[in-house]
Nucleic acid binder design. Structure first.
Lengths: 156, 156
DNA sequence: TAATAATAATTGAAGTTTATACTATTCAAA
DNA sequence: TTTGAATAGTATAAACTTCAATTATTATTA
């Protein structure tokens, strides 16, 4: 195990955490994406189905905010889901700028078929940690994510 | 705070961790990518420069394994860095299938200019956690990443 | 009310990403 | 030693991703 201090203790500690966080995410995300691919979906497509399946009708803007993604990107992903007949668009009556997206019957069926299986698969992966480790880890990650998100964009 | 048990305790615990992990990664990665963009680089381009800057000459294959990325992808990223004159390719004399990639003088200069500043920025973000929290978190993430990576691909 | 600004989504260009297929080189074995 | 398998990297197609520019709609304000 490398313990060399290269940039000072504080920096090394933080960089090490960032490396471990990136790595853990990448490893699990890769397997999760492979699992989703078995159902004929890409990972971002699955995320949209999951959002709509759990929360119902959402606008493009709401989807982008939930997934930290650009609007242009969401338009493309929704286009591809629409081609497959899994979701459909409709204009909001009160504000015609807004496009609402919702599952079709086919999309709803697909969501039901996939979600539980995928959840079991993720649970299987994560269960390499004890329940206490899982809740400790989740607590720390929640704190990290929330505070960093609130940091001022322009603070360097 | 939602505490509804929807899919059973074990599954809810694991899914919650996966959500928090994805979120924390996404939030920090977004800011890190924005920081890197200030230097005229994309995030994967920066990763390649960082690897080469710290480890010296590496093959395409070594780079893909370090970054959990496909070889086709690495070819493209290295192509783009080569266009900018930041890296250069050379064939390995002993095994002419292997392409070694290394920083040019320009790339090395860029690496020196960028890395410390970016490291300071990441440290600034991560420092919303105490040092103890950082080391606890890093330890758990390391365990999670390592064990999941070793899981058999075909185990479902 | 008419001009201007703000908001929501889309489009287009450039880059990233994967999977698959392909080329070149090396290794293994009949 | 020649055939066949394995390895390293590249080319291609389809999808994702961002940013910047554009269109349509709504809100503001002079």
């Amino acid at each position: 195990m490398k313990t060399t201090k290269k940039y000072g203790k504080k920096t090394d500690l933080a960089l090490n955490l960032w490396v471990k966080l990136s790595r853990a995410f990448a490893v699990i995300n890769k397997k999760a994406t492979e699992d989703i691919a078995k159902y004929g979906l890409t990972e971002p497509q699955f995320c949209v189905l999951e959002c709509l399946g759990h929360l119902g009708q959402l606008s493009i803007g709401e989807l982008t905010r939930k997934q930290l993604v650009s609007a242009g990107n969401m338009t493309v992903v929704v286009n591809n889901l629409e081609k497959e007949g899994l979701v459909e668009r409709s204009r909001e009556p009160g504000n015609r700028r807004v496009v609402k997206v919702q599952l079709t019957a086919k999309g709803s069926k697909k969501f039901d078929e996939i979600f539980l299986n995928h959840a079991k698969y993720i649970t299987h992966l994560i269960s390499v940690l004890t329940e206490k480790e899982q809740s400790d880890l989740a607590k720390l990650l929640k704190k990290l994510g929330l505070i960093v998100q609130q940091l001022n964009h322009n603070t360097k």
